[in-house]
Amino acid sequence: MNFDELDQKMRVYETAADTCVLPDMYMVARLDGRGFTRLTKEVCTFERPFDVKFRDMMVRTTKALLTSGFRIIYAFTESDEISLLFDREEQLFGRKLRKLNSLLAGEASAQFSLQLVQVATFDCRISQLPNRDRVIDYFRWRSADAARNALNAHCYWCLRKEGRDARQATQQLSGLTFGQKNELLFQRGINFNDLPAWQKQGIAIYWKEFDKPAVNPLTGESVVALRRRMTINDQLPRKAEYTEFLTQLLDAS
């Protein structure tokens, strides 16, 4: 059996499970840190409940993903997760899910590990969304998750700093409503509404076009060239205003 025959015979086993994102579907990748609870609590000494250094490493990792060869028009990061919205017409690697998942997870893991000087890994999964409404719902969902996580984290660490152990703090918070958790913080001098927006709403990174004065090399006349730059937004709006923000971004893409 020559190489070509052997290659054709074995390639079937490697590609048997290949699936591709269907045409005209929106793709959103979500990356999550693997074992980051232990990493941030035991292996590394990060400030709790939120650490600026950790936040900045997540932002830099997200920025690297935007320049990794994929056409990504919007990225959102909160806690130890990153969500990426691809250009609807993205065709890289034939839209194969195994390639998208493995490459994005590998890229994020490498970028974050280099910054941390410690092994850190991400997993990745792709959501295939049929229309813009579902895209907006997806990012509203992750924004709401950021707010919920922020409230829970601040409540939990308030109780831990008062002397409760992990089990006691978790039990005390179990079953409390959103309003009751807000009141728990307020009684301890913390107004949840006054906490930094990036903790409650996450951070968005996206491309923004701008006009740049230039000179036509052939005629020497002054012209205006359209360029784009990466924008980091840590003051995201909430609820209906966030929906409008996302709608405008999709209109411009």
Rank of each mutant, 00 (worst) to 15 (best):
E244D: 13
R55V: 01
Y74S: 10
R48G: 00
M27C: 11
V215F: 00
A75L: 01
E81Q: 04
L218A: 12
E183V: 07
S127K: 04
A105Q: 03
T62R: 08
F86C: 06
W207R: 13
W207D: 07
R98D: 12
D211K: 06
L22Q: 14
Q199K: 03
F50K: 04
P49G: 02
Y26L: 04
T61P: 08
R188I: 01
R140M: 14
D24L: 09
A252Q: 13
W198F: 12
E209W: 09
K239L: 10
Y206D: 10
D194R: 04
A120C: 06
F245I: 08
L6S: 12
W198S: 04
Q128G: 03
W207V: 07
D4A: 14
R88I: 15
R125E: 01
F178S: 09
L246S: 06
T121L: 13
K212R: 15
E47L: 09
V43C: 07
N182M: 13
E81A: 01
F139P: 06
T15D: 13
L65D: 05
R160N: 00
K99R: 12
A197K: 11
L236N: 07
T67H: 11
K53C: 06
V223S: 06
V59F: 09
M1Y: 03
C20G: 02
I82V: 06
K53E: 09
L85F: 07
T170K: 13
R38D: 07
R142T: 05
L184E: 04
A214S: 15
D56S: 11
D145L: 04
Q201F: 13
D194C: 00
L226V: 12
F50I: 01
A75V: 01
I205H: 09
T219H: 02
K208C: 10
N2A: 05
A108L: 00
Q171F: 07
Q168R: 06
D4Q: 15
A105M: 02
K181Y: 02
L226M: 11
N182P: 04
Q187C: 08
Y74Q: 09
K200D: 03
F192V: 00
L100N: 07
D24G: 03
T243R: 14
L173Y: 04
K53N: 08
V59R: 11
L65E: 05
D51V: 02
R132Q: 15
V224H: 03
A120Y: 08
S83V: 01
L39T: 02
T219F: 03
Q118C: 14
K99A: 08
T15K: 09
Y206E: 09
P130S: 12
R238M: 11
N149T: 08
L184K: 01
T247W: 08
P23S: 00
K63H: 11
A197V: 15
D51W: 01
Q180G: 12
R148H: 08
L114P: 02
L6P: 03
L104N: 05
N193E: 14
N2P: 12
D18H: 04
T243V: 14
D87E: 14
L100A: 05
V117D: 15
R55I: 00
D56M: 11
R228S: 14
